[in-house]
Amino acid sequence: MAIHPLERRWFVVSILLVLVMGLFVLYTAWAAGIHPPSNVEAIDSTRLHLTPEFAEDHLGVERTKDGTVVARIVMARYMVHPQEITLPADTPIVIRAASADVLHGLHVAGTNIGTQVVPGYVSEVRTTIRFDRVAAIGTANPDGSVTVPLFCNEYCGLGHQSMWGRVRVTKP
């Protein structure tokens, strides 16, 4: 089978490009811990405040019996509920977020917590916040903890820029 030399060169270049992009994905996944959350769990967003898990009084941070730290967050135009939470650094945590209306995005600066919050589903992120990373960009508090912003990074309407919250990260 005869292959034109120019075609052969294009073949090599395209394979190299695929390999480079593949390496880039693997690097961010391993070194920076960035990968798409894969939790698929349905919930009725219109009745969110009437569900036991995302009831108003049940939001925020809870330490379960087995020691896991779970933070439950509801995003609704144009606020994050609760507005301020405290999470321990260097400890396995679970973020469970749901939208009460439209598509939102949940991002915590200085961490790999970043997920779409799709109405009708519970978004779950399991991670460990690294104190050195949040300390590098956050605001230091007198008690030694660091505060970083939490915000909506999926345009959700006219008040999108108001959807801010704060995460206080404490030393383990």
Partner: peptide, 11 residues
């Protein structure tokens, strides 16, 4: 933003 208050007019 400092008080985490969205604009009244947004809603």
């Amino acid at each position: 933003g400092a008080r985490l208050m969205p604009a009244c007019d947004a809603c």
